[in-house]
């Protein structure tokens, strides 16, 4: 990989293709990067952090603010990252905070562009401090164990 320029915000999403809500997290994450730019927001790799790949873990530990987005009540991304010592500065759950229903399983393509835009709106709002779905945490909890 190239020499990294760290974004201000690291964005983890569950990106489960198993359901509509999981798909939405991944599609909306890309839209957020398009809107805010790569210097402001960078998508981080959930599988790499779970496997504690050294380079990715080191990069994430240096990012100023971590945002986690889950699609449903299972909260897989949040729980899995907690298991490797990463707590979010901000958290969004599509089912809980945006009332987007989970239609799964195997409903990967059952989302609309307007939903992608709405989820991206919510993530951008959260990052910019305009939403009420933030959950703050101590940055010291974020270093991967």
């Amino acid at each position: 990989m190239e020499k990294a320029t760290l974004p201000q915000v690291g964005l983890f999403v569950c990106f489960s293709g198993g359901s509509n809500s999981g798909s939405l997290t991944g599609m909306a994450a890309l839209e957020v990067v398009r809107r805010l730019g790569g210097e402001r927001v960078g998508i981080c790799s959930l599988p790499a952090l779970l496997n504690q790949v050294p380079r990715q873990s080191a990069l994430v530990s240096k990012i100023e603010k971590i945002v986690i987005v889950d699609g449903c009540h299972n909260q897989c991304a949040r729980q899995l990252l907690a298991s490797v010592g990463i707590e979010p500065d901000l958290y969004l759950n599509l089912e809980e905070h945006l009332e987007i229903g989970k239609n799964g399983p195997f409903t990967s393509l059952e989302y609309t562009d307007s939903q992608v835009q709405a989820v991206a709106d919510a993530i951008v709002s959260l990052i910019q401090g305009g939403a009420a779905t933030a959950s703050t945490s101590d940055n010291s909890k974020r270093s991967p164990s």
Partner: peptide, 22 residues
């Protein structure tokens, strides 16, 4: 996603690696 669209949802569906890991 591309493979699913080409082969159709009866043939291919996606799993969730995060749910599996969790």
């Amino acid at each position: 996603f591309d493979v699913m669209q080409r082969l159709g949802p009866k043939e291919v569906g996606m799993g969730c690696i995060a749910a599996l890991a969790a």
